[in-house]
Write a protein that binds this DNA or RNA. Structure first.
Lengths: 219, 219
DNA sequence: ATTATTATTTAGACAAACTTAAATAATTTC
DNA sequence: GAAATTATTTAAGTTTGTCTAAATAATAAT
């Protein structure tokens, strides 16, 4: 099937939001793609026509098996390009998302399989997310929680789920990267903000919003 | 200036056809871009508006200084990606054109400068064409003529100017690559076909059309 | 269980880049 | 230099993906 860039982006966004199997709402998808709900409805009809999603009026959207396969291909391309940019072109992990967002739409099985070989067939990307193989299989994401729900005291940063550049810039300024070790100092009930400390850095307070987007696992 | 993919492709095609400084005709551009003359006229108005070309009704198109700068950036991106595909991902020189055609539209100065560094700042691409540097400067193409106009007997293939895959596949089948040494056996006046011989291969006859698109220099 | 609010869809319009068909200009030919 | 041919432009319409505004459905609140 030959998809436009826009269609691929919808499929990828649905995949990202679907998490488990609950249906994705029109509004959530519009927000994710920075577009309007009316546009989402239009596209939903088109993707249903192409059998990539199941969709009934007012009932939300779920990927069909074909849709999921497509999504995994796009995700694979995205994450391999991120590896390339970080490993070979020395970009830092917070710079690569936007570029990979464009590179991922160059559709060539051969290109991607050679790129993967060239990179040594990596299985996780620079953000710690697993890379699907050519058949769409990937290692299950390691046990990780968002920082706001972590119960252990000492943690390692494993991924950043919301890849907005504002957040990434903030983390950069605070020297928080993949693999950074954190210690939770306090958890303030009134606004769910969290005080954390990174070795050799002054303690900082992080809003619930930020904490939700930092993924960690116990050290 | 933020150009669409279509606009970049027009600029690149105008650059390619302009050769020297004669104006490019509407028809020639339509043929090159596999579109219709009417579409070219529409786009010409838009590009003139953006000051990338000079264009007057019925007078053809020439790049403005800005337009030339833009063209050189696109050419630079294209040729660097071709180097990457051949040198790093082991593609053969006739496979890379289409892929580079897509990769070239990822616009990021930083990406391209790092890619260039990663490749060792090459100055010619796998087809033998010079790569513009970040300022649009490049080594002038080496003295080369098309095979149909060569006067020497023994020649080296330096480039293939028409990058249609049909031609490239043909050359591949005949084991003719960049750097291949040829000997001209005969030149048939009646249809301007040329009989050539590659070492260890049987002699073959090549049409004028093909000969025009093989660039060579004397050995 | 109405009412109010929020979510979703429909209808109509727009921009970009393309198309075909018709009109006009430029060039060639005799 | 008038007629024929070819090149170019204009006009009107298409598709893709978007938008706004209005209508309708679903959900929440009283």
């Amino acid at each position: 099937m030959n998809l436009s860039v826009a269609e691929e982006n919808y499929i990828k966004a649905i995949y990202k939001l679907q998490e488990g199997e609950q249906a994705v709402t029109t509004n959530a998808l519009a927000y994710e793609l920075e577009t309007k709900p009316a546009s989402v409805t239009d596209m939903a009809k088109k993707l249903k026509e192409k059998k990539l999603i199941s969709y009934e009026k007012y009932q939300g959207i779920t990927l069909s098996p074909e849709g999921r396969k497509t999504a995994l291909q796009v995700v694979r391309r995205h994450r391999l390009w991120e590896c390339f940019l970080v490993d070979k072109l020395s970009f830092s992990w917070e710079e690569v998302h936007e570029l990979a967002e464009e590179l991922e739409h160059v559709r060539s099985e051969k290109l991607i399989s050679r790129l993967s070989d060239f990179l040594g067939n990596p299985v996780i990307d620079p953000h710690g997310d697993p890379i699907p193989d050519a058949n769409g299989r990937m290692t299950k994401p390691r046990p990780q929680t968002s920082l706001d729900q972590a119960n252990a005291k000492r943690l390692v940063v494993t991924a950043v789920s919301d890849q907005s550049s504002a957040l990434l810039a903030f983390l950069n300024a605070k020297s928080i990267k993949l693999g950074t070790q954190l210690e939770i100092i306090a958890h303030y009930e009134f606004d769910n903000s969290i005080e954390i400390k990174v070795k050799n850095q002054p303690a900082i307070t992080i809003s619930e919003q930020v904490a939700k987007n930092i993924m960690v696992r116990p050290l």
